[in-house]
Structure formats: C-alpha cells, structure tokens
Amino acid sequence: MTSHRAEGTAAERSPDAHARFTRLVHEHQRSLFAHVRVVYPHVDADTVVNEAFTAAWQRIDDVPEVGTGTWLRSAARYVVMNRRRGERRWQALNDRVARLEPVGHVPAPDHEAGLQLRLVLDALASLSPADREVLLMTALDDLSPDDVAEILGISPSAAKARVSRARSRLRAAITTGSGPSHDAFQEGGS
C-alpha cells in the first residue's frame, strides 16, 4: 500500500477521465452515501463521500472498472479512519450515535416489530465498533466476503470469520440482554 501525492487540474486530465469520473459519481454517489451514513453514523456522510470521490478523481486510472463500489467504500473507510485518528472522542461519539437514529422519518413498525428493532439496536450498541462496522456493512449491502475483505483490508477468510463472529455476538447479546427494551420484549410477547 502506498501513499503519494498527485498534482494537477482538470485541464490536465483527459476528456475520457472526466467522462469516466462523471459516470462514476452518477452511478455510485447515492449508494456510497448510504454506506457511509449507515456504517459510520458518527461522521458527516457528505464530507466523507466528497473526499472519497476526490481520491477517486486523483487516481482515476487506478479505480477498477469491476468492483468500483468496493474501491470507493474502501476509500471512504480510509477517510473515516484518518478522521477518527484525530478525533479523541471518537469512541464516545460512536457509542452515542450507535443507535442509528434516522434523520428522516421511518414508518413506525408494528408493536412487536418495534420492540424487536429496539432490542436489536440496543444489542448493536453494546458491541464493539469493529463488530458494528461489519454488521452494518453487510446488513445494508449484499457484499461478498471478498468485498468485505477489500474494504477492511484483511483476507477473505478473516472477513468471513469477522462477519460470523459479529453475528454470533449480536445474537448472544440479544439472548443474554437486559434493560428496558429486553424486558419490554419479553413482556410484550407473553
């Protein structure tokens, strides 16, 4: 993995590069935004998406034709991690927003579904950031183990294990959970 600097302006880029970048933004902006919004709810998704696309423009020749979405997610994660290093309160912030409260209005689920959701979000909040990241990532998008591996910068077998472990922990957290939502769910279903 290398890090280097690129210098240049639009005038120095070929029309092909510009056309490809335009297509890339139109095709991936929405899904990349959703990914960042859901997986890293503590950051400003627009800013991260902007930086990830800036990176893509800087090295447009390196952006693969196949797996572009994965490349962009990996770039976005890199941006988030860089920001996290400078954010001493990251852990606290992440915990605070781990419930993934939507900004917009989500139609209210029925009573039991609502209790289930609260239980799941409480369990999610009790997990480590690493578990949350992989759970949210795979819940939102149908990512293959290879995709997860590339985004996280780990081997595919380790990615599979990480997903499996995180799901097991989520289930265990619900089974052994406590607190108001757990009690309400137990009562609500009886």
Partner: peptide, 22 residues
C-alpha cells in the same frame, strides 16, 4: 459535486489502495 472536484487544483494526499494483508 463533479464540477467542484474536477475544477479544483488537486494536491491532497491520495487515498492508498488497499491490499489484503497476508
């Protein structure tokens, strides 16, 4: 977004490509 990114002089640190670690 495209206009803003492509018209700006680019001189930020480039995001590295990730390769799975062995």
């Amino acid at each position: 977004l495209i206009a803003r990114i492509t018209s700006a002089a680019v001189s930020a640190t480039v995001v590295p490509l990730r390769t799975p670690r062995r």
